[in-house]
């Protein structure tokens, strides 16, 4: 089995997911189980079909470009940001999050001046959004 059969990994995930979904439906009432079963079967069969097609036809796939490190870090950042929101409040967490995000999103090495300018802009955005929601729209923020 070569790793160029890229669809095999997703198909395994799908088969497992479908199987799990179906297993959970055993505990449901007759009516409640109908659509989950439909979805579970769909995922299961879809996963199998995908695997079959991957092995049999091995269709050409394009590799998505770009490296993995930055997106993964960004994802971790978002997760931390989301979890910390209710704990440390919207404004501080978002300022921190935005600055860190900026650090991850630079296209090429920036000059110190533009770093400062952009950080200031982001702080401004956070404050503006917080004011907009907190004062004008009366949405209580953490």
């Amino acid at each position: 089995m070569t790793w160029t059969h890229r669809d095999l990994l997703p198909s395994v995930v799908l088969i497992l997911l479908g199987a799990y979904a179906l297993w959970e439906t055993l505990a449901m009432s007759t009516f409640g189980a109908i659509f989950p079963r439909l979805a579970g079967f769909g995922l299961l069969l879809g996963g199998i079909a995908l695997a079959v097609r991957a092995v049999w036809r091995n269709p050409p796939v394009t590799r998505p470009h770009g490296d993995l490190a930055r997106p993964l870090l960004f994802l971790a950042l978002l997760l931390g940001w989301a979890i910390l929101l209710p704990v440390t409040g919207f404004v501080p967490t978002s300022i921190g999050g935005a600055i860190l995000a900026m650090a991850l999103a630079f296209e090429e090495r920036p000059a110190a001046r533009s770093v400062l300018a952009q950080s200031a802009a982001l702080v401004g955005v956070v404050v503006l959004v917080a004011l907009l929601f907190g004062r004008l729209l009366l949405v209580p923020l953490p």
Binding site: A82, G97, A98, A105, F106, Q118, L122
Partner: peptide
């Protein structure tokens, strides 16, 4: 807008 400002700004917006 350079992505280094756009991405974080959108991040703030989606959080809220």
């Amino acid at each position: 807008i350079p992505k280094s400002v756009l991405a974080p700004a959108i991040g703030v917006l989606i959080m809220i």
